[in-house]
Simulated assay, not measured.
Amino acid sequence: MSNPSDELKTAVIIEDDAEIRHVLAEVLESSGFSTVSVGNGIDGVRAVLTYKPVLTTIDVNMPGIDGIEAAKRIRAQSDTFIIMLTGLNDEADVIAGLGAGADDYLLKPFRPRELRARVEALLRRSRAGDSAAAPVVAPSQDRVGPSFPGGRPSTTSIPISPIADEVETPASSSSAALVIPVPAASAPALVDGQDDAAGDWLVHRDLRLHPENRIVLVGGAELDLTRTEFDLLATLLESKRRVRSKADLTLVLRGESYVTSYFVGDADKRAVEAHMTNLRRKLGESAANPRYIETVRGVGYRLTSDAV
């Protein structure tokens, strides 16, 4: 028997090219989504706020507000998974999109199989942390929107308003940072009354992360991280002083079974760099003078030494 929540997934498609909108809708509907398609960024932001989708795809180059600005506005008000779509020669757009809060990107022209694989990887991450899962909203009597009680999901269009291959290098055990589980009784004060009884805290200096409740505290203050930023930080905390390459982190974010023979290209590594830049900014540190995460040039990232 299928899980009812699996039958209520909604995706918003923000794309000004009608043909690409149609292809995206076909692929996502075949993956069990009900889709809402719009042709510009303003209506895209409105659609996300109205339908509260699990997933949103955004084209970078659109009339009116572009995809970067649309992603910023959406991320400020929604935790929907965001996949940016951009041309093959627009790597700078990939970096800007990830900096705006996108979770992943897709280069045009794309293969339907690749889109499905990326979506599945994002949903695996959602299931891995229930407290961070994107909201799934059941259709209501007085809400006009996508629903498919009897079978195949429907596509709904709303009117447009005028308006490394890199090698991991383990560090010497003598310089290992202190990353230890903290029992619930001695953990930091709870945030928003959440129960921390299940699972342990990962600790490095005054940085604390609770994997199950998906809480990050720095000096007792809670940080607001995106799913991707949280997953990157959790991976580094769990790895202690072991270096994690950009290629390795790319596969961690997308799941080990993302594709059978997946090539991690330069754009993928640039994407990890963009996420790390955002994470460091929120942690209040710089790459030149890191307190929590240091760059191992030519390899990847690891925790700083615990020594002051």
Rank of each mutant, 00 (worst) to 15 (best):
R227H: 10
E273C: 09
L236M: 07
K246E: 10
D268G: 01
E238L: 05
V272S: 07
L237C: 05
K282A: 06
G265W: 10
L233V: 02
A274F: 01
T250F: 08
T250E: 06
E256Y: 12
S257D: 15
A247R: 11
V272R: 09
S261N: 14
T260N: 09
E256L: 14
H275Q: 08
D266G: 10
A247W: 08
T250N: 10
L251C: 07
L279Y: 06
R281L: 14
R280L: 13
N278S: 15
G265F: 11
R244S: 04
K269S: 15
Y262A: 07
T277P: 03
N278W: 07
E273R: 08
L237Q: 05
R270S: 12
F263K: 09
G255S: 04
S261I: 15
A274W: 01
L279G: 02
K269M: 10
L237W: 11
E229K: 05
R242H: 10
S257L: 09
R280W: 12
L279C: 05
L249E: 07
L236G: 02
E273K: 11
S257N: 12
K246P: 04
R281H: 15
A267R: 13
S245C: 03
R242Y: 04
L283V: 08
V252Q: 12
V264D: 01
V272C: 02
F263Y: 08
K240H: 08
G265V: 02
V243E: 13
E238P: 03
D248I: 06
D268Q: 06
L253S: 04
D266F: 05
R242G: 05
V243I: 15
V264K: 00
R242E: 05
Y262W: 14
E273T: 14
K269C: 15
Y262G: 15
V243S: 14
R280G: 12
E238V: 03
H275V: 00
R281M: 07
R254P: 12
T235Y: 06
R244C: 07
L279I: 03
Y258N: 14
K282S: 05
L283F: 10
H275E: 00
R254M: 07
S257A: 11
S245Q: 05
Y262E: 09
E273Q: 14
L253E: 04
L236E: 00
E273P: 10
L236P: 08
H275L: 02
E229D: 06
H275T: 00
D248S: 11
